[in-house]
Computed example of a mutant assay.
Amino acid sequence: MDTTANPIRKPTPAFILAHPAHFLSQGFGSGLSPIMPGTAGTLFAWLSFAVLSVRWPQIFTPMNWGIIIVVGYFIGVWACEVTGKNLGAADHGSMVWDEIIAFWLVLLFITPAPFMTQLWAFIAFRFFDMVKPPPIGYFDRQFKGGFGVMFDDIVAAFFALLVFALWMTW
């Protein structure tokens, strides 16, 4: 991406509030964490999933979570595309909606689960998202823009779920 016309910007609270795409793609502000914003976004995903599921179980059912995740994925493609262009970086570290949607997907398939199981799911997902072993790294390099931002995290979520599926068979 040519960033000479649109140099990389540092996101601020004002930037997040300037456009709904920024607010969403930057995880309602969790992406502004000065250290490990992806981990902060994943922690936000975990907390929000737990709070919403416990507080409003009649609304946040597994079926509705599935719908939220699918719709959230496609809205995230748009939001990350817009925010990436406005920040001058296609996959800016402050964009954490991809981690949120992907970790909600992991939680959807493993809950109800004890805290320690959820913690191991968190660790497994963060490992695959940060290290990007094949084919995750391949997808990260091949697909750009909003789709690329969102897609590699979904693949990381599937790898974390695969680890859990293998673990449960032993």
Rank of each mutant, 00 (worst) to 15 (best):
A14F: 02
A45V: 07
N86C: 06
N64G: 06
W46R: 09
T39Q: 12
W56Q: 12
A14G: 06
I101D: 01
G146V: 04
V149R: 13
A102G: 02
D152K: 13
L24N: 01
F125S: 01
S48A: 15
H19P: 07
P133R: 01
A113E: 12
Q26F: 10
I123T: 08
P134F: 13
M150N: 12
A40V: 07
L47M: 13
W97Y: 07
S48V: 14
Y73I: 11
F44Y: 11
L17I: 00
I75P: 07
Q58K: 13
T42P: 10
L17S: 07
I136Q: 09
R9V: 07
I68L: 15
A14S: 10
F15R: 07
H22G: 12
V149S: 11
P114S: 13
P20K: 04
S25Y: 01
L108C: 11
W65H: 10
P13E: 00
V82Q: 06
S25L: 04
M130W: 02
L17T: 01
F125R: 05
R55W: 15
P11W: 01
I154G: 07
W78L: 07
I100C: 06
K132Q: 06
I123D: 03
T83H: 01
H92S: 00
F74G: 03
S33A: 15
M95F: 07
H92K: 04
R141K: 15
I154P: 04
L17R: 11
L119C: 12
I8W: 02
F125N: 01
D153A: 13
I123W: 00
G76A: 03
M116I: 15
D129S: 01
D98E: 12
W56S: 11
P62C: 00
G38C: 15
A40Y: 12
W65K: 09
R55S: 13
F151T: 14
A21Q: 08
L119Y: 08
E81M: 04
G84I: 00
W65C: 09
G31T: 05
D140W: 06
V71D: 06
S25R: 03
F49W: 03
F122T: 04
V155H: 10
R55G: 03
P134N: 02
L87I: 09
Q118S: 14
P37W: 08
F128H: 02
T12M: 03
W65L: 08
C80I: 00
F143S: 04
F147V: 15
D140S: 11
I110T: 10
S30D: 07
G137K: 06
G84Y: 06
V149P: 13
I67A: 14
S48N: 02
W120D: 10
A121W: 08
C80Y: 00
P11N: 00
H92D: 05
W104Y: 05
K132P: 01
I136H: 08
P62E: 03
G146P: 08
P34H: 15
F143Y: 15
P134E: 06
